[in-house]
Design a protein around this nucleic acid. Structure first.
Lengths: 225, 225
DNA sequence: AAGTAAATGTCGGCTAAATGACCAAATGGA
DNA sequence: TCCATTTGGTCATTTAGCCGACATTTACTT
């Protein structure tokens, strides 16, 4: 298997496609692969040094656990997304990634190797910088949401976001292929399973949407309030 | 006034001190100054393009307002800190900076000019990258705090943070020069004035701290729970 | 020194939403 | 096909902490 084939996904990556083939090889040499099945925990072993990961295939969630064992889903990531430890921090949070689809593949490199490449590649640096800016922005929005809005509005803006990102339109209805349980959604919007279930049923009654375990159908955007 | 004098603070800046004098001039040419008095609102005019600011002197707070006019303090910044619009976003949040000390000075450059410099300066790029990483980390912590902890623990970890950052030690007591009102603290930890006041009095009763309007004295760290 | 504005103190009522407990339905594996 | 596990549905109870409303204290101005 030659490099170009093995690492095609780096070529297509939103961050990586500013790199020349030569530079790509450089990263490739320091690249590691990992695979995992549904439900498996993927990473954040505290012993090895900081690593950055790119998700090649599948869907994962980034989860944080507090002292009492409550979990909060920090992010849902899909093909092409980056995750991992971008800062060298001693305080190792109880944070890890869980595979949500049947088979996921990701590859990783050490943060300091990545930084070396960045240092020699300003264009990549700029891209990386912008990408971080977007992450920051998104987190800021989530934070503001949490502070300002009640659970109902959080759920609704979550659904709307989801719809614009992944919704497939079907004569006035937006269909969301659903890989999240009410529990997942709850911890994404910082609420509880029961509350989410209740809200879903309320929205269903009002004719705003319909849902099963495998999909959510938004029937009427204007009723989604 | 020559450039070297006028822009001394760029030389000392944690981000900028990797720049050569020549490169510095380049940024300087596209630099703008602003000053403001206590209480004045500094920036975020929606008409001009994205700008990055560095705070030369004083203390400011970054504030966001929601529809109902509730304000949330997103950050307290001091000399040397960077703020502004790091991403080119259309959705202009209701966000602005307010001067908290008597006289503040900051200077700014257009984001795209800044980016041009970054693109030609890998060392700066790497620094900028790391700096953003820290911002991200900090916000993540705040987010997790908000989700996991109650108001009391949020206040306490806020005080502890503050103490390690700015506390001056005085025979077993840590003194914090206080420029924040209970209202400010409340909106920093996402609570209300009344609750913060009540908690402060409770901590005072327990002998953990003492306070006036101008300072907070942490008398016993172990009682701060 | 007096007057005013801003910051703190205190309290009871109120409510969104968490919690816990239990049951029903769906899913998937053997 | 059956059984076990996961997911969803519902309700009664509890609670943290928000929200006025008002009194008191501190700081600033003239």
């Amino acid at each position: 298997m030659n490099l170009e084939t093995k690492y095609w996904h780096l070529h297509n990556h939103k961050l990586m496609n500013v790199l020349s083939s030569a530079e790509l090889k450089e990263i490739c040499l320091i690249t590691n692969f990992k695979t995992a099945k549904k439900g498996e925990i993927i990473y954040f072993s505290h012993d090895e040094s900081s690593r950055v990961y790119t998700l090649k295939r599948g869907t994962i969630k980034i989860v944080e656990i507090d002292a009492k064992g409550n979990e909060i889903v920090k992010d849902i990531l899909q093909e092409g997304d980056l995750f991992g430890q971008f800062t060298l921090t001693d305080e190792t949070l109880d944070e890890y990634a869980v595979a949500m689809s049947d088979y996921i593949t990701c590859c990783s490199f050490r943060l300091d190797d990545f930084e070396k490449v960045i240092e020699r590649n300003p264009a990549l640096a700029l891209r990386y910088t912008k990408w971080m800016g977007f992450r920051l922005k998104r987190l800021e929005n989530r934070y503001a949401n949490l502070v300002f809005k009640d659970v109902r509005s959080r759920l609704i803006s979550f659904l709307k976001d989801w719809a614009t990102k992944e919704g497939s339109n079907n004569n006035n209805e937006i269909i969301l292929k659903n890989y999240l349980t009410h529990q997942d959604i709850a911890s994404l919007i910082c609420s509880t399973r029961q509350t989410v279930t209740a809200l879903f049923n309320d929205l269903k009654e009002k004719g705003a949407l319909d849902y099963s375990r495998s999909e959510i159908i938004i029937k009427n955007m204007t009723l989604l309030t």
